[in-house]
Simulated scan of single mutants.
Amino acid sequence: MDKDNFKLLLKKANFNKRTFSEHLGLKYQSVNSWGNNGRNVPYWVESWLHLYIDNNKCKQIKDMLKDSGICK
């Protein structure tokens, strides 16, 4: 994954590099260096962010259904 796609997915997940690193227990300096000076974004980050984004969407739908009384 390239640096621009990483930034885009972070934004969609409502993260910045600092909050992402804190959420995962990673050093900010490591996350901040991804995509710079030849350092690639780790292979697992893209799928992790996609799953996180999708999970949040499912939670929102579940909450809306629960609030509407359709699901309990």
Rank of each mutant, 00 (worst) to 15 (best):
K11C: 09
G69I: 08
L26T: 03
D67V: 05
L51H: 07
L26D: 03
D2R: 15
K3I: 00
K7D: 10
N16L: 00
K12H: 08
G38T: 01
S30L: 02
K66R: 11
T19S: 15
W44V: 07
K12N: 09
S68Y: 07
Q29A: 06
G35K: 06
S30A: 01
F6C: 10
R39G: 01
Y52I: 03
S21Q: 10
K59T: 10
L8E: 14
L24Q: 13
D54Q: 13
Q60N: 13
M1Y: 03
G38F: 04
V31I: 06
Y28L: 05
V45Y: 04
T19N: 11
D54I: 10
C58G: 08
K17E: 10
F15P: 13
E46Y: 03
A13P: 09
K66S: 09
L9Q: 15
E22Q: 12
G38L: 01
L51P: 00
I53R: 03
D54M: 11
I70L: 09
K57E: 05
K17I: 00
G25T: 05
L65D: 01
K3C: 00
I61M: 11
D63Y: 02
W44T: 05
Y43P: 00
R18H: 10
L65I: 06
E22N: 14
L24R: 12
S47R: 09
N55H: 14
L10H: 06
M1K: 14
K72M: 12
D54P: 10
L8K: 14
A13C: 09
L8A: 14
I53V: 08
K57F: 07
K72N: 15
K59P: 03
K3L: 05
D4T: 07
H23L: 00
K66C: 07
S21M: 03
M1A: 12
I70K: 04
H50K: 13
